[in-house]
């Protein structure tokens, strides 16, 4: 699993429709879901509630700018002047 996540260029979005009674509930459930499956850097990008529930897109950042990117397979100390 983690090796595949290395290939995510930056973020992974999870989109679905959750049956719930309010936007707050949908937001809470979706964030909880992402945390339950092991993501920590999570946010709701888009959520819209209507009577039946929420259309929601949540995001887990795998590589933020400035990180060491798994898709480049690099890991070392810093310091050299490279042009």
């Amino acid at each position: 699993m983690s090796r595949i996540l290395d290939r995510v260029m930056d973020a992974m979005d999870v989109e679905t429709f959750l049956v719930c009674s309010s936007e707050d509930e949908g937001r809470r459930l979706m964030l909880q879901f992402l945390k339950d499956i092991g993501f920590s850097d999570v946010d709701i990008v888009f959520i819209q509630f209507q009577g039946p529930g929420v259309r929601v897109r949540a995001r887990a950042y795998i590589h933020r700018p400035g990180d060491t990117y798994g898709w480049l397979k690099a890991d070392s100390a810093e310091g050299e002047d490279v042009k």
């Binding site: 060491t68 898709w71 480049l72 397979k73 810093e78 490279v82």
Partner: peptide, 15 residues
């Protein structure tokens, strides 16, 4: 800010 290191640059070039 931080500087990139040579290993990262080599990986970028390869990518």
């Amino acid at each position: 800010t931080r500087r990139f290191v040579r290993e990262e640059v080599v990986a970028l070039e390869s990518y």
